[in-house]
């Protein structure tokens, strides 16, 4: 599985995610500059990393979503290729309309960085297949604009089709308002598209990929992706 990490000006988790994927899976990871118009030909998995692309000026992810490389990224997704947006990458995915909804400023209006519990809601996606349904995992969050919002009917549709993959919870898996760090609708932390190949995730799995720095739950996340890829040959 060859991974391409798209680097936008202002991305700051690009190196981290490359480190985590290479460290967890030992597979090939390449950085791709946003001004490229094509992905490396053998790309199997594309990651839009976290950070503050274009300074988060105007709206988070808005300008990155219009970068030259994004046509190729969208095409990769449309063909069913694996595509993951983490944090700012999630914002870029919604701004690109590759995922529904939008991410608004946290309800506290403050940036928040801390470890966070997530409940795995769906294990039928390539990003979560090695977790068990209802399992509680810990990934850190670090964002100022993580409040996921969607018009009510669309939210219902998203829930009905099982599009919510991760939900903010407490350590027991309870998804009360106390466990919601940013005010997201239905405690939503991560969603997939209908086809199941594009995941947007506010928390950072790459920050939970080593015991020394943040824990190892993220390794299972990466391994899920590799296993699904290997099995499914996407």
């Amino acid at each position: 599985m060859n991974t391409a990490v798209i680097v936008f000006p202002g991305s700051n988790c690009d190196q981290d995610v490359m480190h985590a994927v290479a460290g967890s899976l030992g597979t090939k990871v390449r950085a791709v500059w946003h001004k490229e118009t094509t992905l490396p030909e053998d790309t199997d998995f594309v990651i839009l990393p976290g950070g503050f692309s274009f300074g988060d000026y105007l709206r988070c992810g808005a300008m990155a979503a219009r970068s030259p490389i994004m046509k190729a990224v969208a095409e990769h997704g449309r063909r069913g290729g694996l595509l993951l947006g983490i944090c700012n990458g999630f914002q870029i995915l919604t701004e690109s309309r590759l995922l529904p909804g939008a991410l608004l400023p946290n309800r506290t209006l403050n940036f928040v960085c801390r470890p966070c519990f997530l409940r795995v809601e769906s294990v039928s996606t390539p990003f979560s297949s090695l977790f068990s349904k209802g399992q509680v995992v810990q990934f850190p969050i670090a964002h100022g604009d993580g409040l996921y919002t969607l018009p009510e009917e669309e939210l219902k549709a998203l829930e009905d089709r099982g599009g919510v993959v991760f939900r903010y919870s407490d350590s027991d898996g309870l998804t009360g308002d106390d466990a919601n760090p940013n005010g997201s609708a239905n405690n939503i932390a991560g969603i997939v598209n209908e086809r199941g190949n594009i995941l947007g995730l506010m928390p950072h799995p790459e920050r939970a990929s080593e015991a020394l720095t943040g824990g190892e739950d993220g390794r299972v996340f990466w391994q899920s992706i590799l296993e699904s890829f290997t099995k499914g040959g996407r």
Binding site: L104, P105, N106, R107, L109, L147, P151, G183
Partner: peptide
């Protein structure tokens, strides 16, 4: 309308 304006609320 209908999208929560958190900044507006805070102000």
């Amino acid at each position: 309308e209908g999208v929560l304006d958190i900044q507006g609320k805070a102000v």
